Measured scan of single mutants.
Amino acid sequence: MPEGSASLQLAVGDRVVYPNQGVCRVSAIDVKEVAGQKLTFVTMRREEDGAVVMVPEGKVLAIGVRKVASAE
């Protein structure tokens, strides 16, 4: 991610809310080559049905992904 860009610090195992998809758990953060460029992807699995969603790390905030609020 370019320096100075806002990002959401995620780790494998974090629970997040993905708008219009529901609650997901981060299952992987991997670098993949797409069209000759190396990009970091956040892979999330929906808790409702296990569907897998992959989002480029740089788009996580723009999409509206946020961490699940704690009970505290």
Results as ranks from 00 to 15, higher is better:
residue 14 D to N: 02
residue 32 K to E: 05
residue 64 G to K: 06
residue 9 Q to H: 11
residue 64 G to V: 09
residue 46 R to Y: 03
residue 40 T to S: 08
residue 24 C to E: 00
residue 5 S to E: 11
residue 3 E to W: 03
residue 22 G to Y: 03
residue 21 Q to C: 08
residue 69 A to M: 08
residue 57 E to N: 06
residue 8 L to M: 11
residue 38 K to L: 13
residue 59 K to M: 15
residue 8 L to K: 08
residue 40 T to V: 14
residue 5 S to W: 09
residue 15 R to W: 15
residue 45 R to V: 15
residue 64 G to M: 11
residue 13 G to I: 01
residue 54 M to F: 08
residue 9 Q to W: 07
residue 16 V to A: 02
residue 34 V to K: 04
residue 19 P to W: 06
residue 12 V to N: 01
residue 28 A to W: 05
residue 47 E to R: 01
residue 19 P to E: 08
residue 39 L to I: 15
residue 10 L to S: 01
residue 44 M to D: 01
residue 62 A to T: 07
residue 69 A to P: 11
residue 32 K to V: 14
residue 53 V to A: 03
residue 13 G to V: 01
residue 16 V to R: 00
residue 6 A to I: 13
residue 18 Y to A: 05
residue 64 G to T: 06
residue 11 A to M: 12
residue 15 R to N: 03
residue 20 N to A: 08
residue 13 G to T: 01
residue 3 E to I: 11
residue 27 S to N: 05
residue 55 V to Y: 06
residue 62 A to I: 11
residue 26 V to H: 00
residue 17 V to S: 07
residue 12 V to E: 03
residue 62 A to S: 09
residue 31 V to R: 05
residue 35 A to V: 04
residue 54 M to D: 04
residue 26 V to Y: 00
residue 26 V to S: 00
residue 2 P to D: 11
residue 62 A to K: 08
residue 41 F to A: 00
residue 16 V to Q: 00
residue 33 E to W: 13
residue 26 V to T: 00
residue 2 P to F: 09
residue 1 M to R: 13
residue 52 V to I: 13
residue 60 V to N: 04
residue 1 M to I: 12
residue 39 L to M: 13
residue 62 A to P: 09
residue 41 F to Q: 03
residue 5 S to Q: 12
residue 28 A to M: 06
residue 31 V to W: 06
residue 3 E to R: 05
residue 14 D to W: 01
residue 56 P to Q: 11
residue 61 L to A: 14
residue 40 T to R: 14
residue 65 V to F: 04
residue 19 P to F: 07
residue 31 V to Q: 08
residue 23 V to G: 02
residue 9 Q to A: 10
residue 37 Q to R: 11
residue 20 N to P: 12
residue 57 E to Y: 15
residue 63 I to P: 09
residue 25 R to K: 07
residue 10 L to V: 07
residue 12 V to Y: 01
residue 24 C to I: 01
residue 33 E to L: 12
residue 59 K to Q: 14
residue 11 A to V: 11
residue 2 P to G: 11
residue 56 P to G: 05
residue 69 A to K: 11
residue 36 G to H: 03
residue 45 R to A: 08
residue 17 V to F: 15
residue 63 I to R: 05
residue 33 E to H: 08
residue 27 S to D: 12
residue 65 V to Y: 03
residue 19 P to R: 05
residue 53 V to L: 15
residue 2 P to C: 03
residue 70 S to N: 12
